[in-house]
Amino acid sequence: MLKFLKRFYIFIIFTFLYAPIAVLIAYSFNSSKSSKWTGFTFDWYIQLFQDKQIMNSWGVTLRVAIFSAIIATIIGTMAAIGIANMKKRTRSAVLSVNNIPVTNPDIITGVSLMLLFIALRIERGEITLLLAHITFNIPYVILSVLPKLHQADNMTYEAALDLGATPFSAFWKVVFHEIKPGIVTGFILAFTLSFDDFMISNYTGGTAQTLAVTIFSMTKKKINPKIYALSSIMFLTVLILLIIVNLRQDDNNSKKERKLKKVEKNL
């Protein structure tokens, strides 16, 4: 009985979490524009891909997500290396500065970036959008690379130097491999955050509209089920990315476990 209650409780929770999305996905296949179910159709998906505005937003979203993730990963990784080598006091100061944008409401980041671009007289478009996304992605990359740097002990870096590697090649041949999982996770995280961002994109994109912004502006008018179709695709994209991130972490963990078991056997 208790077991049943436990399961039921979890079932309720997941229902509340996922029912709205399930409804959304269901409506994206509804042949009627109203909330009445009138039959199954792919029409909205077909219309979606014929809509120039939406296709344009797809392009903007993907370009900004990919480039901002790449650039933020490079800058964030370099920053993390710098931070890891700081003295303790400076390090904790820099880290708390790094954490402010993470906890700061998006709307404040968005409005302040908009004001900055206006003050600098930079016309808002895809470039400002990209700059804004790089900015808010960097702290997340730092946060995912830094723990790996702490895990990787400094000894292997010194060992590489000792064997004749210059500091530069010691980084590429040794340290980079040790922190690679953190870098990849940081990249995927940055891509996902950029992909589903609305608030900051809304204020900094100007003429360049991301999918989220397009959907928002479309819902202000009469709602077209194309939006349901689009939202379903976006949901699936983010879901797949998150599953990849989780699987990677599981994979790392189970690899470690297997290694440990092997070592135990050898001992």
């Binding site: 000894m155 010194e158 590489a160 130097l161 000792d162 040794v174």
Partner: peptide
Amino acid sequence: YKRQLNTVFQKYALF
């Protein structure tokens, strides 16, 4: 990296 000596580290520091 330019010294003609090598080190065996405390916790091995293997790659």
